[in-house]
Write a protein that binds this DNA or RNA. Sequence first.
DNA 1: GTAATTGCAAAAGATTTGCAAGCGA
DNA 2: TCGCTTGCAAATCTTTTGCAATTAC
Lengths: 163, 163
Amino acid sequence: MMLTEQVDRIKERLKSKGYKLTPQRETTIRVLLEHEKDHLSAEEVFLLVKERFPEIGMATVYRVLDLLNELQIVQKVNFGDGAARFDLRAANSPHLHHHLICTQCGNVEEIMEDWLVSLEKRVEREFGFTVTDHRLDFQGVCSSCQMKEREKNKGGKNCQAVS
Amino acid sequence: MMLTEQVDRIKERLKSKGYKLTPQRETTIRVLLEHEKDHLSAEEVFLLVKERFPEIGMATVYRVLDLLNELQIVQKVNFGDGAARFDLRAANSPHLHHHLICTQCGNVEEIMEDWLVSLEKRVEREFGFTVTDHRLDFQGVCSSCQMKEREKNKGGKNCQAVS
DNA sequence: GTAATTGCAAAAGATTTGCAAGCGA
DNA sequence: TCGCTTGCAAATCTTTTGCAATTAC
């Protein structure tokens, strides 16, 4: 889908709920769409928006992000560093992506498929709990960090870990 | 398992890593064990510990919780309200419990089984990502809130939602 | 005895709020 | 025009840090 198309769709959503289309809101939405893969923090969004709209204030960015979160356009997530991050929800899927969080390099990879359909049914069946959303994150070591590790240990030393 | 037994086990773990057994640490551990189901925030832990050990300071509680988190005795989680919460890890299972978070009443129920074994294998296989831990939360409406909802709507009105 | 640990107070971040001015519909 | 929005600064809330005094081993 084209960027403009996505922007328009979100603008439509705002309008339909009676919210005004201000340049601050539009710029923030564009920044989020252009950094879809990045899990930006509020401050990062602020800095990026400020590049194009220098008068904007931090508080406005927080308010826009809050609004988009309420409208389910973004999802606020917390990976454990001090700050909340914002994940754009896919236009078609109502669910948050799954994440692979590398504890060595801090990189976050996304799994866009929904792997939880059958588990949601199980929750419904066993707990009588109606699922509206879910969150699945894996922590561990990504393939490129594993490669670096192997690289570092090469040389046939075949060493054992000692405490 | 008895409480004292669990406390001893954790004390052993501290000692083996060269940490000292202070009354502040012991009291904090006891409080966490006695509120295993509660997902306490740092402040809540602080207040509970303060009841038995009034001289303790907030900073100490944060430091103890950090330490227990590092030793994998508790797991720091963030459900999206402003503050981090602490979940005791089961003595046998290395993984964090799954959670059913009710968006109506805010209650958090735990699933103690590990439902993710096969998905972890898939992550390993498809992404070359070695999983060390995971997190699975479902948001939705719990059975008792659904019941309250039904109760409220009874009387055969059979109404439709209007915006 | 000595290094780890603590309590306090201050600092640091992240986020929210009050309010007068500005702007979109 | 009118009420929603904004920018700023101050306030709030959570968490961290520096440091001298204390304590477990």
